[in-house]
Design a protein around this nucleic acid. Structure first.
Length: 487
RNA sequence: GCCGCGUUCGUCUAGUCUGGUCUAGGACGCCGGCCUCUCACGCCGGUAGCACGGGUUCAAAUCCCGUACGCGGUACCA
């Protein structure tokens, strides 16, 4: 019996933009799989496209992974046994293997111009077994001619797809997948700028870096036969493939930037950070998007997820992003925060709204709102009355809670509060209950108008805590103003 | 268009491989109730689904075929 090779997986984003939420999900599943099996998780930067390269993108990717706590064992900055991990620094390697493929008659040089390619596509479709015979390449041209053209240094290397063959591979998530060779075109492997395409670079690196499992998005499924052909041509054992279902928009379609923005769904990982989501909650939610533990559990720490994770429990169909579910998961992480942590996380958002608040008061406010918010910034955005007087009174609340006697009761309450020395939850409550008794009304007859007057709303934290947190002067001022405005 | 992959409540999923225990389970959302100064939390209850059509079988959400629909791919992009 031969032991399974050690698990080594890679997350291989291309630095063409900020890290996308789907990319993070791919990274997460790779991470979980690696950790679950005691293997290595590698970050590899696939920067073979000079035109789409975006400076700063690599930093964004690294920062995003650090923010959520997905630590990798090898990467471009941290190095490792298989360095370098940036493909642009490995060009010679790819050229070498492209040549090997040519020697093995599994690839060839092509010299067609853009115009010629365009014409070919219009007439025939793809550069493949049938069309390559009519094109200018090392299969159709004389050796001398090829020699001469190579001198000009403007050529590409294309994969020579076999005339007829059925290409089959096993996908961990989907089972057996087959393609007919006639459906596969002669993919460019080495571009005229000397850089490899994804297809070549990816198989060379995966092989050289001893990658055991390729876990990537489903968009790669249809190019996998090309990869399989290359592994075979080079005499290499291909890694196991696992193609993850794509994340779709809640409308069912592709999660486009425009679409997402409209629905309030952040597209980039960095946006979740600025929007104040808890990184652990994001990971938890993402884990559930395409995978299920098979139990009723839904809230997992990274370690718990790692324990529970298994590729066979990853689904094969596209999954729709559900912002409500994310918020629900996040809510649980917010509740698990200590008051100090919550206050610390909330401060920047409070300040961004232009409010000033002491640490002590912010903690008090956080205590009051912690289990009433889903995302940290809501400490400020959903509870402005702690920081400024309400500029209007919730209509339905007034309708329901503001009675004829409310103004007089509030005025009397304000008077009592004015006389009080210590303005804390207990005294505020005592004063209110005494007043209610004195006036022979239920406590609610004062409670509800007081809440309305001070917060402008009919709902929120317990009213005594609320009043105490808002403070004596502000409360009295707001009560008198409400009595005047609402009558 | 062609090729590939997919299809269980609105959404994420359990169940499908190893057909009966599934009058299909859980969660989000939504609705109702309890708690309660309100809201939220929590708890209790409800709503809603095997895409469709054939077949195989004593028996199909589960196996087979077809159709529909969705997604992906079809670049010197990844």
């Amino acid at each position: 019996m031969t032991a399974d090779p050690p698990v080594r997986v890679r997350f291989a984003p291309s630095p063409t933009g900020r890290l996308h939420i789907g990319g993070l999900r791919t990274a997460l599943y790779n991470y979980l799989f690696a950790r679950k099996h005691g293997g290595d998780f590698v970050l590899r930067i696939e920067d073979t496209d000079q035109a789409r390269y975006e400076p700063g993108a690599e930093d964004d990717i690294r920062e995003a992974l650090a923010w959520v706590g997905l630590e990798y064992d090898e990467g471009p900055e941290e190095g490792g046994e298989f360095a370098p991990y940036r493909q642009s620094e490995r060009s010679d390697l790819y050229r070498e293997y492209a040549e090997r493929l040519i020697e093995a008659d599994r690839a060839y040089y092509a010299f067609d111009t853009e115009a010629e390619l365009e014409e070919m596509r219009e007439d025939h479709g793809a550069y493949d077994v049938t069309t390559r015979r009519h094109m200018r390449n090392s299969l159709t041209l004389s050796d001398d001619e090829v020699e001469r053209l190579l001198e000009e240094d403007d050529f590409v290397v294309r994969l020579k797809v076999p005339r007829q063959a059925s290409i089959h591979f096993d996908d961990v998530i989907r089972g057996g997948v087959s393609f007919d060779a006639s459906e596969v075109d002669d993919q460019v492997l080495l571009k005229s700028d000397g850089m490899p395409t994804y297809h070549l670079a990816n198989i060379v690196d995966d092989h050289l870096m001893d990658i055991s499992h390729v876990i990537r998005g489903e968009e790669w499924l249809s190019s996998t036969p090309k990869h399989v052909l290359m592994y075979e041509a080079l005499g290499w054992e291909p890694p196991a493939f696992a193609h993850l279902p794509l994340i779709l928009s809640p409308n069912g379609g592709k999660l486009s930037k425009r679409d997402a923005n409209q629905l309030g769904i952040p597209v980039y990982v960095g946006d979740y950070r600025t929007d104040g989501y808890e990184p652990a909650a994001l990971l938890n939610f993402l884990a559930l998007l395409g995978w299920g533990p098979g139990t009723d559990e839904e809230l997992f720490s990274l370690d718990e997820m790692t324990q529970a994770f298994s590729l066979d429990r990853v689904g094969a169909s596209g999954v729709q992003f559900d912002l409500d579910k994310l918020r629900w998961v996040n809510e649980h992480y917010v509740r698990a925060l200590s008051i100090d942590e919550l206050a610390q996380k909330a401060r920047p958002y409070v300040e961004a709204e232009g409010y000033e608040v002491s640490d002590e008061r912010l903690r008090t406010i956080c205590e009051l709102v912690q289990d009433r918010i889903q995302v940290v910034p809501e400490v400020a955005t959903d509870n402005r009355y702690f920081f400024e007087a309400p500029d209007e009174y919730e209509e339905a609340g007034v309708e329901k809670r503001w009675k004829d006697a409310s103004a007089d009761l509030l005025l009397a309450y304000a008077e009592r509060l004015e006389a009080v020395d210590t303005f804390d939850t207990d005294t505020v409550e005592t004063e209110l209950r005494d007043l209610a008794e004195e006036k022979d009304v239920g406590a609610g007859a004062v409670i509800h108008p007081a809440r309305l007057a001070v917060s402008g709303r009919s709902y929120g934290p317990g009213v005594f805590g609320l009043l105490a947190a808002v403070g004596k002067d502000a409360c009295i001022r707001r009560m008198r103003r409400a009595a005047e405005v609402l009558g």
